[in-house]
C-alpha cells in the first residue's frame, strides 16, 4: 500500500526497512560503508531537543546520530509505528510489536494486559485519551498520549 510521504523520522519508535539509500552520492556512500544498506531495518530512537538531529539504531546493533534531511531522502517502508503516528487508523486491527520504554513502563502496561504480540483495535484517537480495544481480552483500555507514543504497533495481514 502506497501512502503519502510522512516525515516518519519525526516519530520515535518508528521502524522501517530501507529500500534505497537516496540520491545524494556522498551520504549514500557514507551509509553504505558504515554497513547501512538496503534491506537493513532502522528504528528512530529519539529526536535531539531542537529536532533536526535524530538518533537511529540499525539492526546490526549500531546507533547513529544523523540529520533528519538525510533520513527523509531514504526510501523506506514503514514496518512499525507508535499508536500516535498519523497514518494509524481507527477500527483497524494491529499487532503490538514492542513496548518502547523502560522496564517500569513495560510493567505498567503488563498490568493493564498490554504486551507485545497482542492484537488490538483503536476505538478512540482524539486527544487527550487513546482508547484501545484488546481483541483477545475483550476489554478496552484508556491510555494517556505519552503512553500511546511508546506503544509500537505493526499492521497485520488478518
Amino acid at each position: 500500500m502506497k501512502k503519502t510521504k510522512r516525515r516518519f523520522e519525526r516519530y520515535p519508535g518508528v521502524e522501517c526497512i530501507i529500500h534505497s539509500l537516496g540520491a545524494d552520492e556522498k551520504i549514500a556512500q557514507r551509509l553504505a560503508q558504515m554497513g547501512v544498506l538496503p534491506g537493513a531495518t532502522l528504528q528512530i530512537i529519539r529526536l535531539a531537543p531542537f529536532g533536526t538531529t535524530v538518533e537511529v539504531s540499525v539492526d546490526s546493533g549500531q546507533s547513529f546520530a544523523i540529520r533528519d534531511e538525510y533520513l527523509t531522502a531514504l526510501k523506506c517502508q514503514i514496518l512499525a509505528m507508535p499508536l500516535t503516528y498519523p497514518d494509524v487508523r481507527l477500527h483497524t486491527t494491529y499487532r503490538i510489536r514492542t513496548l518502547f520504554g523502560g522496564r517500569k513502563f513495560q510493567q505498567r502496561m503488563e498490568t493493564q494486559g498490554i504486551h507485545p504480540g497482542l492484537f488490538i483495535k483503536i476505538v478512540n484517537l482524539t486527544k487527550p485519551r487513546v482508547i484501545l480495544q484488546l481483541i483477545e481480552h475483550e476489554k478496552t483500555v484508556k491510555l494517556g498520549r505519552g503512553e500511546a507514543e511508546k506503544i509500537i504497533i505493526e499492521v497485520t495481514n488478518a
Binding site: I27, L31, M34, T53, E55, Q62, F64, A65, I66, R67
Partner: peptide, 8 residues
C-alpha cells in the same frame, strides 16, 4: 562540510 552521520 562533510555529511553528519556519527556513530554513537
Amino acid at each position: 562540510p562533510e555529511p553528519f552521520i556519527m556513530e554513537i
